[in-house]
């Protein structure tokens, strides 16, 4: 029984009004699942995720969250509706302490913010030890965990993650992705963009492949592993990207 959290229908978007990067992309993220988006460089993966987060204007198409139209909503309102976004880089506030980062994310969450913050710190023990340090002093992996903790602060329905493994060691990557998997057990849905295709495919439930701002192929991740067409789009695109 499919249970979509987010539906992206024929979305056209780009940084500049006349220069769309996405040309009518559609996808569905199911509740409690990891939906993976892959594709060659310049396919528009990050653009798509930013458009969903409300950071890039959508010029055509629709975004719906649990059936509610959220196409032209401000990013801070989307955050309140339960969409959390973890950018690829610069995803924490370096000048604030770890604790201040969390408190900021919890600002509009309601409830007992201090209790919720302590709960998050227990969940990420590595952060708890350094909670009074500036976030700028954290290692790459720890930053990624802080960013995820900030995303979790508002008990989101959907987390958008843009290449959480970027710049991380293989060990840290595995840790971060494992954590993502654990989250889905609590009913959180994840929309994941990854370059690290092999690791991410093993983890994901469903997978979309984008190229040149358009949908190419999609299907259950397990079925797409080893699919010839995928390899061609991916490698072909990669060669194009390199040229």
């Amino acid at each position: 029984m499919p249970d979509p959290v987010l539906q992206v229908s024929d979305v056209t978007a780009g940084y500049v009004p006349d220069l769309p990067i996405l040309h009518g992309v559609s996808l569905t993220a199911e509740r409690g699942r990891i939906t993976l988006i892959i594709g060659p460089n310049g396919a528009g993966k990050s653009t798509l995720i930013k458009a969903i987060a409300g950071l890039i204007p959508v010029s055509a198409g629709r975004l719906t969250l649990d059936g509610q139209d959220v196409t032209h909503i401000r990013p801070d309102q989307l955050a309140a509706y339960g969409i959390a976004y973890v950018p690829q880089t610069d995803n924490i506030f370096r000048s604030l302490t770890i604790r201040q980062n969390l408190d900021l994310a919890l600002r509009r969450a309601g409830g007992d913010a201090a209790a919720r913050r302590n709960q998050l710190l227990t969940q990420f023990p590595a952060l708890a030890d350094k909670q009074h340090d500036r976030a700028g002093t954290l290692s790459g992996g720890q930053r990624q965990f802080l960013a995820i903790a900030m995303a979790l602060a508002r008990a989101p329905r959907l987390i958008l993650m843009d290449e959480p493994s970027a710049g991380l060691s293989p060990k840290a990557t595995a840790e971060v992705l494992e954590h993502a998997r654990k989250l889905t057990a609590d009913g959180v849905s994840i929309l994941l963009v990854e370059q690290n295709v092999s690791q991410a495919m093993k983890l994901a439930d469903h997978c979309y492949i984008l190229a040149e701002g358009r949908n190419q192929v999609d299907g259950p991740a397990a079925e797409l592993i080893g699919n010839k067409v995928v390899g061609e789009i991916y490698l072909g695109g990669r060669r194009m990207g390199a040229a």
Binding site: G54, D76, L78, A79, A80, P87, F93, R107, A109
Partner: peptide
Amino acid sequence: ENPSLAQVNGV
């Protein structure tokens, strides 16, 4: 520090 990150964090 980072206006768009602040926005997605609810500011």
